[in-house]
Design a protein around this nucleic acid. Structure first.
Lengths: 217, 217
DNA sequence: ATATAGTTTTAGACAAGTCTAAAAATAAAA
DNA sequence: TTTTATTTTTAGACTTGTCTAAAACTATAT
C-alpha cells in the first residue's frame, strides 16, 4: 500500500518520463511537485527501496514496471473522477483538476470498477487525455487537433488544450462538448478557418480556435 | 482548515456527545477511534486551543458551537457520499461505510453542493440517519422502527438497523428499498407480525424483521 | 480517612514527510 | 585541465500524529 505522498511522486514521475527520454532528475520532480530537491531525493530513495523506482545517485530516476502500474492506476482514478465531475456534476472542464487530485487517492478497487461502469467506460477525460484501463494500459490515441482535420473528415471531441471559462462558453454556443461529433464541411485556404457541422447545425470556426480542440477520428 | 485526523476527532466527539449527557472522556474518544488515551488527550488539547472543543483536564471534553458545525459538515459529507454509493453506484447498504469514511474528507464546498443537487437533496442516508443541511442543522427526524407502526399507519423506509447481505436480499424480495412507502395493513396481536403493503402488493413480515427497518412518517 | 484501583495526563520517543544549510558530484568555461 | 557554476545528496532539525511508560489525579472500598 502506498501513501498519498508516494502516489503523488509516482504520478509525477510517470508524467515526466513521457517528456524526457533519460532518467528524471530529482530537481525536475521537485519542481513539478512544488517541493525542494532534497525532499525529492529522500522520497525517490524510499521508492527505490520499495522497488517501484530505479535510481542511481546523481543519475536520475525512472519507474519500474511495478511503479508504472501503480502510477497508471492513480492516473486512471484521477481521469475517471474528472469525467464524473464534468458529466454528472456539471463542473466545467477547468474546474475539476484540484478536486480530482484529492479523489484519486481514495482506496477502493470496487469503487473505481463501479464508477467506471456508471460512467459507461469512458476512454478519455474531459481534457482529452486517455484513461488507462484496469491493467494500466493506455489506448494509444489518435488524438489530434480539430485544425488538422481536412474537408469531409470528422472526429469526436475529446477535450480542449487550454480552457478558460470564456472559451468554454464559446464552445457551448457551438454546441461542442465532449463526445460531440464534429464534421468539417469546408476549409478556407487562406486563413485555415473552417465550417463545421455539430449536431445537425453548421458553424464557423477560426483556425486559432480549431487549434484548441482535441478530436479523435 | 482542519486535518483529516482533527476532523475524525470532531466527528467522534459529535457522536459520543449525543450518547452521554456529560463531557466526553478522552478514554471514550480513544476507544471510538481505536487509538490510545494519551493520543486522544494530545489531540483534544490541540482542538481546545483551536477553540472547537471545550476541555478541562480530567473533566472530559465537548464541542463548541464552532466545533459542532465542523463535525456536522463532515457527517453531512459522509452521509451524502453514502447515498451516492448506494443510489448511483449500486453498492449495498453495508458496503459503503469505509469508502464514505475516506470521501468525507475531500475538501470542496462546491463539490458537496453539486453532489447534493445530483442526489436530489436527500434527507436520510442509506442507514436511515439524517443528513445535516448546509448549515449543520439536522432535521429532527421521526425515525422509528417499522415494528412501532400500528394498523393503517404508513411510513417511508429510510434504512435498516443491521444489514447483512442475506437480509438485504430478503428485503429485495419484499421490494423494500430506501424511499419505499410501507403501509401496515394488519398487526397480529399474539406475535407482533404484520401484513404490509409495498408497491401495491402485500407481504407478511415477522416482528423481528420489522424491528430492523427504519421508517419515517 | 486511607489504601487501592482505575482513569487521565505528561514526558519522551518514533515514523513520515518536509525544510535549510552544508558537502559532494557533475557540468561548463576559461 | 583547472576553476567555477550548477545540480544533487547528506545531515540535522521541525511538525503531525502516534506510542509506551511513568506520574498525577479521581473514585471506590474498606
Amino acid at each position: 500500500m502506498f501513501t498519498l505522498a508516494e502516489e503523488n511522486y509516482l504520478k509525477a514521475l510517470f508524467h515526466l518520463e513521457s517528456e524526457s527520454k533519460d532518467g528524471v532528475s530529482t530537481n525536475a520532480i521537485a519542481l513539478k511537485l512544488k517541493t525542494k530537491p532534497s525532499s525529492a531525493t529522500d522520497m525517490i530513495q524510499k521508492l527505490a527501496e520499495k522497488k517501484v523506482v530505479a535510481y542511481q545517485k546523481y543519475k536520475g530516476a525512472f519507474l519500474t514496471k511495478k511503479g508504472k502500474l501503480i502510477a497508471a492506476d492513480v492516473i486512471r482514478k484521477h481521469r475517471l473522477w474528472e469525467v464524473f465531475l464534468v458529466e454528472k456534476l456539471n463542473f466545467q472542464w477547468d474546474e475539476v483538476h484540484d478536486i480530482a487530485e484529492q479523489l484519486e487517492h481514495i482506496k477502493s478497487e470496487e469503487l473505481i470498477t463501479r464508477l467506471d461502469t456508471f460512467l459507461d467506460h469512458p476512454n478519455f477525460d474531459p481534457h482529452g487525455d486517455p484513461i488507462p484501463d484496469e491493467n494500466g494500459v493506455i489506448k494509444s490515441s489518435d488524438k489530434k487537433l480539430l485544425s488538422e482535420l481536412e474537408e469531409n473528415q470528422q472526429g469526436i471531441c475529446v477535450g480542449v488544450k487550454q480552457s478558460d471559462s470564456k472559451y468554454l462558453q464559446y464552445l457551448d454556443k457551438l454546441s461542442i462538448n465532449i463526445g460531440s461529433k464534429i464534421k468539417v464541411l469546408n476549409v478556407e485556404e487562406f486563413d485555415g478557418s473552417k465550417t463545421i457541422e455539430v449536431g445537425g447545425k453548421s458553424y464557423f470556426i477560426s483556425e486559432k480556435s480549431a487549434q484548441n480542440i482535441y478530436v479523435i477520428n
